[in-house]
């Protein structure tokens, strides 16, 4: 079995809100999969369906080879989940919570637990009600990372962490991947996804709009090119798939679609290029392009995209 998660055509409505509208998602075993989308696009809803907390209206979902609703209890032995908004039992200490959650999953590795508490600089003696948001998140993360499971389902796990802890988190996820675990990482922190993920699915308004490796996604979007001299500018502007041609002094810059790259480079070569800088699109550029174009198409999700990108 090569897919840890496969979801297709998933629909979930809450009253009149269509939270998931035919969503597709495939996570291969052993990969770190980024699950990207603006606020309210349906990431948490998808995850809650995958955990058997919600029942989908239609569509199919398979998780670790089972049915997430029917086989929930058995499947949950093999996964760990960190919710986006962690609430803890007010009277239980962080250490107790970690142990309790770990034991319910069949026990956790004491050495790993101790190591993680150390690395995340968590005080495990504090009571649940006394932790800040970031520290509550750490408790849930440590409980998940210290258990011996095949799949980690992480819903915006770093939303309360400071940059130092965010770095520790990234390190941990890399270790998990090396250990052969599968990770589904929902996020709107693009840098995190770019740094960690093998493949990415971008969703909007309950639908998958892009899915693939970062390289594949880049192929679908534009590469920015800067070259000297600028003599090729008029002919570049005439090529299909080349956009935003601009000349500053002796330099030309433009945005080139993936499939027009060959033609553009041939034009530049023909003019005797002296210097050439090409930069693949960042995930942020891809992300913004999806949401800003969708925004002009008259959709409400677009306004959250700016906010999302700004929070980076």
């Amino acid at each position: 079995m090569t897919n840890a998660i496969s979801v297709s055509g998933l629909v979930k409505t809450f009253g009149r809100t269509r939270a998931l509208d035919g969503l597709d998602l495939t996570v291969r075993t052993g990969e770190v999969h980024g699950f990207l989308g603006p606020n309210g696009s349906g990431k948490s809803t998808t995850i809650r369906v995958l955990l058997g907390l919600l029942r989908a209206d239609s569509g199919t979902a398979r998780l670790l080879g089972g049915d997430p609703w029917r086989d929930a209890t058995a499947l949950h032995r093999r996964l760990a989940y960190v919710p986006g908004d962690v609430t803890l039992w007010p009277a239980l200490s962080g250490g107790e919570t970690i142990d309790l959650l770990g034991r319910m999953r069949g026990g956790l590795d004491p050495a790993r637990r101790a190591g993680l508490i150390d690395r995340f600089e968590l005080d495990p003696r504090k009571k649940g009600r006394a932790y800040s948001k970031g520290n509550r998140q750490k408790v849930a993360l440590i409980a998940a990372l210290a258990s011996d499971v095949e799949l980690l389902v992480l819903d915006e796990p770093t939303s309360g962490l400071d940059p130092l802890m965010e770095a520790v988190f990234q390190e941990c996820v890399r270790e998990e991947r090396r250990a052969g675990r599968t990770v589904l990482l929902s996020s709107h922190v693009l840098g995190e996804v770019e740094a960690l993920c093998d493949r990415v699915s971008i969703i909007r308004a309950g639908r998958t709009v892009e899915s693939g490796t970062l390289a594949e996604l880049r192929h679908l979007t534009r590469t920015s090119i800067e070259a000297e001299p600028s003599t090729a500018a008029p002919r570049l502007a005439g090529l299909p798939g080349v956009h935003d041609v601009r000349v500053t002094g002796d330099r030309v810059s433009c945005q080139v679609d993936g499939d027009a790259l060959g033609a553009a480079v041939r034009e530049l070569a023909a003019t005797g290029v002296r210097s050439l800088v090409s930069r693949p699109p960042t995930l942020e550029e891809m992300f913004l392009r999806h949401y800003t174009t969708d925004h002009t198409a008259g959709d409400t999700a677009g306004d959250t995209a700016g906010e999302t990108a700004g929070s980076r």
């Binding site: 250490g95 142990d99 034991r103």
Partner: peptide
């Protein structure tokens, strides 16, 4: 808030124990 234990007692291991707590 008095600090709690750094690790859970052996009995705190399932939903029933949690409910009791």
């Amino acid at each position: 808030d008095r600090p709690g234990p750094a690790a859970a007692a052996p009995g705190l291991r399932g939903p029933f124990a949690l409910a009791w707590r």
